[in-house]
Write a protein that binds this DNA or RNA. Sequence first.
RNA 1: GGAGGGUUGGCCGAGAGGUUCAUGGCGCAAGUUUUGAAAACUUGUGGGCGCAAGCCCUCACAGGUUCGAAUCCUGUACCCUCCGCCA
Length: 416
Amino acid sequence: MIDINLIRENPEKVKEGVRRKQYDPSVVDCVLELDKRRLGLLQQTEELRRERNEISKEKSEENIARGKEIKAKLQELEPQLKVLEGEYVEALAEVPNLPFEDVRVGKGEEENVEIRKWGEVPQFSFSPKDHVDLGRQLDIIDFEAGAKVAGSGFYYLKNEGALLEVALVQYGFQFLVKKGFTPIVTPDLAKERFYLGTGYQPHGEEAQTFTVIDSDLGLIATAEITLAGYHADEVLNKKDLPRKYAGYSHCFRQEAGAYGKYSKGLYRVHQFTKVEMFAFTTLYGSQKVHEEFLALEEEFWKSLEIPYRVIEMCTGDLGAQAARKYDLEAWMPGRKDYGEVTSTSNTTDYQARNLGVRYRDGDETEYVHTLNGTLVATSRAIIAILENYQQEDGSVVVPEALRQYIGKDKIILPSA
RNA sequence: GGAGGGUUGGCCGAGAGGUUCAUGGCGCAAGUUUUGAAAACUUGUGGGCGCAAGCCCUCACAGGUUCGAAUCCUGUACCCUCCGCCA
């Protein structure tokens, strides 16, 4: 959530930011109104509590009688305050994080900015296949078995497909450990508080997550949820910041209603594996770490020699959490287009305030800034690798960086 | 699954209805001293509002009892130990 003081002191500025994000700025007035009513009632109850504390210091007939009056009055006011408190928090949660000033203002996806392109889009002397055909012919991806056992949107990786997944994780971990990240394997499920706190809606129309019946648990959509939660309710030391984690987890998404050629095969699936970067920084350190995350994503994808482009989201495509966000889109010959493979966001103190992650700076405690970024999501990486590295005979060359983890240079047809 | 024991500030740990304003220690921060550091000493160190004085909240969470609850009662979560089962 956003800082209430920012709204109180500068409502017009907040409204402008909310408007840029294409959210309805009237939530800001709603918050202010509820805040005012809440404070009025809070003042009343606090005054009664003060008196109660005062008279409980000395036992007398008179004080006991007055104490009974106060008790009755508080029993009336406190439930009202609680209701108002609830409405206020709910309204406040609807105010999105403000975009940074220099983020391009735009309505949505169409107005995102391409920052740069890297690599040569491969020119094939034959007609290239998509990863679904390649995967089937090489006997490394089995969508039919996935559908039979778990339903549409699930898949089996086998043979070099399975090795490729593990290799990407192994290489990704090694890569980030060398850059000073702490490798960490997180739970694949989390309590509601943590996905709400990171901005994932567990229930209702927009729900993209799977939840566990009769429990408070949901399958995580990204390790961002469990990594952000790792330090929930803690006060970190300033000198320990930034803390950078390389998280490994499975990710589960319902992807309801997402069909069509752009969600073919591995592109939009219910389960995939991801190595995620996550950082806790000071108030002042987040922009630098965000640029670092983007640079690491680029270095990683360059090392796989996959052509990509970098997109900076315009204000309308940032979502509620982010103040700035970049995506990497890898070239996918099967789509004859770029497809999103990574996303890195600076969520400033927005998630930290929800989850109570602070740091101590001398006498002060401040909310940390949190950042997340994909290093590699195995499913989409496999698409990019198979499709870009395919050969005329249907085989696929293994990117050099992965060869030591797979133990071979080339994936060949089973019959060959 | 069964039986016990626990949860107090950044950490450790006292506290068992009103002399508590949550002792004390460690750590951390600032200051004094020092050429510099260490040590020592002093001060500060849960959250909110406030220029301040001060006020409210806070002892896992949620209810309850009471004029008054960290303390008593109920429920929930989590942790630990032992037994059983198990990859």
